[in-house]
Design a protein around this nucleic acid. Sequence first.
DNA 1: AAGGGCATTGAACGGTCGTTCAAACACTCG
DNA 2: CGAGTGTTTGAACGACCGTTCAATGCCCTT
Lengths: 192, 192
Amino acid sequence: MRAVDADEKVDRQARILDAVLRLLSLQGISGVSMRAVARAAGVSLGLVNYYYEDKTSLIRAALHRIEEQDIALVEPDPALEPEERLRAALKRVADPEFLTTEYLSLRLQLWALAQAHEDFERINTEAQERYRAGLAELIRAARPGLPRGECDRRAADINVIQNGLWLTALLGLDHASIGRSVARCEEIALAE
Amino acid sequence: MRAVDADEKVDRQARILDAVLRLLSLQGISGVSMRAVARAAGVSLGLVNYYYEDKTSLIRAALHRIEEQDIALVEPDPALEPEERLRAALKRVADPEFLTTEYLSLRLQLWALAQAHEDFERINTEAQERYRAGLAELIRAARPGLPRGECDRRAADINVIQNGLWLTALLGLDHASIGRSVARCEEIALAE
DNA sequence: AAGGGCATTGAACGGTCGTTCAAACACTCG
DNA sequence: CGAGTGTTTGAACGACCGTTCAATGCCCTT
């Protein structure tokens, strides 16, 4: 059982952060207490405070973790042509891998947190802007003739629909309207 | 000062609920404690528990209050022709009156709560369905020739964009993309 | 073997939480 | 006036919260 032991021991800090994300997604911020996090991560209360100065920095770390995932969504896939690259990125947001209740609920909780806490709002806004810029860049690569302003506009419009798509997927489960919305995003992005 | 005194006295129960909505919007669920609510409403701690059995029923009451506002958004305006009625309803969601940070933040907090608490989720889903049904009915009245399924489909698609619109308005403040999204909703709704 | 530096633990602190409840208040009716 | 009814208050309870910290365990170096 060496490997399992090692797995369980390695990087307790990461396991603590995982536990935060899990609890936040399932129970909301009310369910995230230092003790609950410690319990869910299988470590002692003291260790949570050892790795994270206080609760605020713990949540902040969770926010940054989600931010990385968001940016990865518009990371260009180098194996594809520009247009297919864009299509792939647009489809990725409706991928079952990302459209899980756990992930979407987590996003929602973080957005809710951003509303209540100025510090978190800044992190969130920056992430949103980086995402939108990445999307605009993908459009520009796929439609080189478009002026930059038009690319930004399209990225913004797509962003609106994608946000709605995520929210709708979370609140109800209307798969058909999600598919149609992805198609609508492609239309907006690739119009000549 | 009779009138003011009366105003301040009348319906303390309603003032308590107002305080909940205000706190929830501004500080999230973490800011809503029985004591904070009492303080914000200008009543004693005991009175909050007098009118609301426990904290859960207090939040539940807040959810129902928001639900009423949502349904009112698609309430047909009898003074208008069917098509204008629909346009009015679609424009209403982007009305500055509803697009305030306070109101949107409140919605977000309630959605976040619905994820964490089964009881709240049910209330929320029902409200969402009633809203969507109201929207489909408006479309049917404006385009009587359309089959019912197509109306439902359009209502669902519009709902996705509107959710995104609200969320985008809350996270950033891209007014231009909001205007374009409202126009897109009209196109979807009124296509022949 | 002894020492030193991280990692890890859980008890303890003061504070806030939700809930309960006896007491005080305001008001109407007889 | 006094009895009765519905409001309103704030103290008190036990539970849980975030944070601190002395003590312990573990592993590498000398």
